[in-house]
Design a protein around this nucleic acid. Structure first.
Lengths: 106, 106
DNA sequence: CAAACATGCAACCAATTGGTTGCATGTTTT
DNA sequence: AAAACATGCAACCAATTGGTTGCATGTTTG
């Protein structure tokens, strides 16, 4: 995982509309573009752009089916973002631990 | 945690420069603005803006000390973003589980 | 086949972002 | 007190983003 790819994932998640889309997908059944675009407070084409942003970051995959296009969460991408944060936290904890050692024995 | 606050955290993490800053902070000792701004490929003021973005999202805290300003990671904010992703994944897994039940007994 | 439906594509626009430069201000150091 | 250091503030700029509208295209349904 390159730093840039991770940044793109976070960037994709860094918008309330896109976050809501992702939540809907994790929640309910497989949704197509049209359904997913409803009740977001923006136009269908606006929503489509946001979904495309999620596709580019691989947070989501598109599966054409007849006249509609199903949208599916990509769990591996979510897992990667989670792993990154957990790694950060681990480093941070290590550092705190080292600092504690230092103050105790210094 | 409001949806918007979470989105702001992800947005803050959604940039390679800011991501690198966060990693440096999790890695090393407490850094001041000046040190943190080095080797990012941008000017000090440019870096300062990025750091401010992290402050606004509460990914990072500033602690003035004399003529310099120390920058510190906010572990609770990282934890919140981690919790959000994990919650998403949990919902997703639940859904897959339900789907499996359905196909088995349907 | 015609109507309705789901989507795609492109042009356009305002607001935000990511970066710059120049200069001012407060704080150590010598 | 003067020099060096760490930072702040503001104006400015190009590129990206988030949204719109209008229209075209392929796919079901009646």
């Amino acid at each position: 995982m390159t730093q840039l790819a991770i940044a793109q994932i976070f960037k994709a998640l860094g918008d309330p509309v896109r976050l809501q889309i992702v939540q809907r997908l994790s929640n309910g059944a497989a949704l197509c573009l049209g359904e997913l675009s409803k009740d977001l407070g923006i136009s269908r084409q606006g929503a489509r752009k946001q979904i495309q942003a999620l596709v580019s970051a691989k947070v989501v995959q598109l599966h054409p089916a007849g006249r509609e296009v199903k949208v599916q969460l990509d769990a591996t991408t979510l897992a990667q973002s989670r792993a990154f944060i957990i790694a950060l936290e681990a480093q941070w904890d290590e550092r705190l631990q080292a600092l504690k050692q230092f103050t105790e024995h210094g």
